[in-house]
Each structure stands twice: as structure tokens, then as C-alpha cells.
Design a protein around this nucleic acid. Sequence first.
DNA 1: CGCGACGTTGATTTGCCTCAACGATTGTGG
DNA 2: CCACAATCGTTGAGGCAAATCAACGTCGCG
Lengths: 193, 193
Amino acid sequence: MSFPALFSYLESIMPFSDSEREVIASKFSPLEIKRKHKLLISGKVCNAYFFVVSGCFRMYGVDDKGYEHNIQFAADRDWIADIGSFYSQKPSQLNIEALESSLVLRIAQSDLYELFSSQPKLNRIFKIMIENKYIELQNRVLQNFSSTAEERYLAFLEHYPHLKNRLPNTQIASYLGITPEFLSKIRKDLRDS
Amino acid sequence: MSFPALFSYLESIMPFSDSEREVIASKFSPLEIKRKHKLLISGKVCNAYFFVVSGCFRMYGVDDKGYEHNIQFAADRDWIADIGSFYSQKPSQLNIEALESSLVLRIAQSDLYELFSSQPKLNRIFKIMIENKYIELQNRVLQNFSSTAEERYLAFLEHYPHLKNRLPNTQIASYLGITPEFLSKIRKDLRDS
DNA sequence: CGCGACGTTGATTTGCCTCAACGATTGTGG
DNA sequence: CCACAATCGTTGAGGCAAATCAACGTCGCG
């Protein structure tokens, strides 16, 4: 169990010794997840973090009318968890679902906390990761307020080139906060012009 | 310089010894900021974090058409900075402006990094703070997608009771992502019903 | 006092949604 | 290996939430 994808990610931030790698790797378990299967179900506590080795996931909430709204996608070499539920240990309102058959590495909350104590470097890595996710979200809030749906769609294509040919348009529409029908119209307008 | 407001906040999370307090306090400088003055101006790098002792600030971006969009407010015992610019040391696209005459404690980026090394506890406190801000933003994204402006306004009043009598409605409208005129209509409808 | 920020109201416009219908594609069980 | 269901993308007609533009009264402040 050497998890090259995980360490390639970790060591892109800072180096680890062989013994550190061994301790860290021992806490992660590989999981194969089939398309449409879930890593987290709304109502349950999110008691693990997941590192996506390959495949693709979406995290989404469901509103009063039953509509789903994608909060974020996570593909190769990305992390995913409901951070709010994970740290508060309260039930999550979100779901994490595989959009493709995927391979993830799972680390339980208690094991991650142990690593935070024994491997202080991991604290920094997780701090950096959350900062990055925070910045992404902040840009999204700003953009939702200041751009039309078409502008947001174009920005999405530019910002996530590795996702655009991998996701059905319905999923992209849900991420942009519009209906699939309206995204279809946007795409038609872009083709026509 | 004992900064009771700062340590009352820090010690609500974890205790500090007298000597720790002294080292930490030595890195913060108090600043008085008058209404409408800025802690951060778009185009500059955000090279400090601010702890708001008293008063109130908004952080906002300006879109192509010149409209301002409030990203967040920070009042008593809250932190404010453009986290993205702070960590990347790239120019910020945001502004931080006092809505009232305020008192803040400023810590420069280099001093904060020094404290992160010498006072590991602060790492955890900042990690927790960013997690909380992340959760807040995530809820905001979800709510923007799944609620009407009226629902978001009511949720704002409920979630930020200490701000609602302190902010002009134009600022609240900007935070909610609607025009001041439309907020006025919402308030009228709520009064009439 | 007079100016500028603020809140309100009304008329009109528009971006996006809703609902409905229809082909194309995928995938799955018999 | 085919038949059928399910998912996906598209198009169109009609409707609604919120924006835009314009006007006006109020208040606090220099």
C-alpha cells in the first residue's frame, strides 16, 4: 500500500520521509466506488475524508422542492468531505455521489486527528487545502452576484477544462445554479454566434 | 498592551499562559479606523490580518459595471482579511472598508507566520476560524441557489441579529445579491403581511 | 443651510424558470 | 443480442422574480 497518487499530491506541497509515509499510508484505506453510489448520505455524519485517486464525484444539497444543487466536484487528486459535518460531527445536509466509477482513499476522522498530532506537517497541508477551497468558494459567490449565467458557464469551462468533457450538462447546470434547459439555450446561443 | 478583547476570543478556544500571551500581543498593533476608511484597497496585496475589537467592516468586490458586492461583514471579535491575497501575496480584487468608526488589531503577514512557528496553538485557532468561514460561505452558496430573496433576507436577520440594526439596508442588499429597491419591496411586503 | 446618502414607490423590461414534448444515446435485463 | 427503460440534450410557449430607470421625501452632517 504505497498510494503513489496520494504521496505525489502530498509531496507537491512538502517532502516526507519513508517512515512518515509509512505512518500516513497506514491510516488510509482504498475504496472502489461505482457510478451513482454515495460516499456520504444526507442525514449521516461525515466521519471521514476522501482523497480521489481516480474518477469523479459531486457534493450536493437538496432543497425544499426536491431540487439538487451541486456545491462542488472532486476529480483526480482532489479531496472531498463535508467539512462542516466532519468538524462538528453533526448530521450532514449534503450528499457525495460518484459520477464515474472511482477509486478513493478513505481516512476516518479519528485517524486524521491522530495524524494531525503525530505528523504536524499534515496540519499545514490541510490548512492550505481548506484555504484553497475557501478562495474558490469566495470567487464563486462573487461571480454568482456579478455575472450572467452565460458568463459563469464560460468561466466554468475555462477554469475546469479537465471536467468539461467529463460531466453531463445537467450536472454543470446544477453547479452553475441554473436549469438544464437554460444551459442548453446558452450553448445554442454560443454556437450560433 | 494586553488586548483583552483578543485574548477573550483566543481563550474561548484554548488557554494561553502569561508568557504566550506576551509574545502574541507583541505582534499586534492597534489601529483606529474612521467610517468609510479602508483596511485594504483593491489592487494592493493583503499583507495583514485584522482582528476587529469594536466597530464594523465590509469586504466587497466591484464588478465590470461598477457595482459593489459585499462578500462578508466583520464586527466585534471577528477576523477579516482577503485570505486569497494574503496567502498568495498577489494583488487583491477586494476592498475592506469601515462602516463605523472602528478599532482593530493588525498583525503583519510575516509576524503571523512567525507566530505560527513559535506558537503552534495559533495554527489550530486559524484553522478553526477558516473552517468556520468556509462553512458559512458554503451555506451561502447553497442558499443563494435554493431560496428566494425574501427567504434569504429573513435568514440573514435570524443569523446576524447583531448586525441587522447596525447596517444600512443598501449594505444588506449588496450582501444578499439584490438591489436596494428590491429589498425595499421585500420589507414592504413583510410589513403588509 | 444645502448636499449627499438613504429608503421608498411605481412602470417597464429581462433573465431565467416552468412545463411539456420530442429525438438520441446509453445501458441493462431477459 | 435485442427490447425497453432511463438518462440526456434540445426546443418552444408562457410566466414570474428581480433588475432597471426614474422620481421623490427624509435625514444626518459638514
